[in-house]
């Protein structure tokens, strides 16, 4: 009579998927044009920058950290790329490695400050949020840069009949998922974020006792987040063909919300890259739906608020459920008989 998992737990585990299904059904009923392959591809393309950055954020959140600087990193990478292309006449192909290096650099800086100097992630990345945006504004002199059409081609080409942003997203997703599941780094990361007592101050202590090199893991985690932000920036630039001074401003919150919506916990120790993509898709699908039904513009902030609230609520419910499960030892041990 004692069940192992209640329907509630199952529902919470698959909540992102359920929610996505509901949203799709609702929108399909509201606007018949919604359900088309073209529109779905369109949503995927539009969601890809946030989705890729959210994959990076997944790593950070699993480590029970946070990275607020991703939006500014996207801007800084874009600003440097813009100046190189427009003023120095660099080819697009030459600029891409530079953007990746910028993202990696900001990520490594975050990681170094957090891992080696043991500073609080929230404050460190808040500082880099301001610094990176400041540096970007200085580089662009607060002016919008219009990029040549060659940059836009990145967003338009369809190798294998699939838009390039979607291909990039798939490659990043598969890489991230295998790194999380199959590498030493991934396993150590999950251990690092796991927190046996539910006590904030003990985060990582268990992992250190287990002989894990915490700083090495943290350094890589933030580097990955920075790198993913840069990839997201490349796609954004290709879509907009411009770098505006408020590029990526506030997008870190959307990225974190997408990640949490996809089932990654703000408390650390849990999450998947696939979930992050699903979360980003959910956010973009809702926006697409609002555009489709030509909703009242005042409606958008309400929906955004509801999404963030939902994400946090979901996470907290899941966390409570899990704590409860940890309390209850509702199994008759099978090893003893």
């Amino acid at each position: 009579m004692i069940q192992q998992r209640s329907i509630g737990v199952l529902a919470l585990t698959y909540a992102p998927l359920l929610l996505y299904g509901l949203v799709v059904l609702f929108l399909a009923a509201l606007a018949p044009q919604f359900l088309s392959v073209a529109n779905f591809l369109n949503i995927l393309v539009l969601a890809s920058p946030v989705a890729i950055a959210a994959i990076g954020m997944t790593f950070v959140l699993i480590s029970a950290g946070i990275d607020l600087s991703v939006g500014s990193t996207m801007f800084l990478a874009g600003a440097i790329a813009g100046r190189l292309v427009v003023d120095a006449g660099w080819p697009v192909v030459g600029v891409i490695p530079v953007m990746l290096a910028v993202g990696l650099g900001v990520g490594l800086l975050n990681g170094w400050l957090i891992a080696r100097l043991k500073l609080v992630p929230f404050m460190v990345t808040l500082a880099t949020l301001f610094s990176a945006r400041g540096a970007g504004l200085w580089i662009t002199e607060t002016r919008a840069i219009n990029l040549p059409d060659s940059f836009r081609q990145l967003a338009v080409v369809h190798p294998l009949g699939i838009p390039l942003p979607i291909l990039i997203l798939v490659v990043v997703l598969l890489t991230a998922e295998t790194v999380l599941r199959r590498t030493v780094l991934g396993k150590h990361l999950y251990a690092l974020g796991y927190n046996a007592q539910g006590d904030e101050h003990e985060n990582g202590r268990e992992a250190a006792k287990a002989g894990i090199d915490i700083s090495a893991v943290l350094l890589r985690v933030y580097a990955i987040a920075g790198l993913c932000a840069a990839v997201g920036s490349i796609i954004t630039l290709a879509q907009l063909a411009a770098v505006s001074p408020n590029l990526g401003q506030g997008i870190e919150l959307e990225i974190i919300a997408a990640t949490v919506l996809g089932g990654t916990s703000l408390f650390g120790g849990r999450g998947t890259a696939g979930g992050a993509v699903l979360g980003a898709l959910l956010v973009e699908t809702v926006r697409n739906g609002l555009n489709l039904v030509n909703a009242d513009p005042y409606f958008y902030p309400l929906i955004t608020g509801a999404i963030i609230f939902g994400a946090v609520l979901l996470d907290s419910m899941r966390q409570q459920r899990l704590t409860l499960l940890r309390h209850r030892n509702i199994r008759i041990p099978k090893a003893i008989g």
């Binding site: 606007a31 539009l46 920058p49 954004t236 879509q239 926006r287 697409n288 555009n291 489709l292």
Partner: peptide, 14 residues
């Protein structure tokens, strides 16, 4: 610009 781009793309889609 990002939100504008997504909005225009979505609206042109439909």
């Amino acid at each position: 610009q990002e939100i504008a781009y997504a909005g225009v793309t979505n609206s042109l889609q439909i």
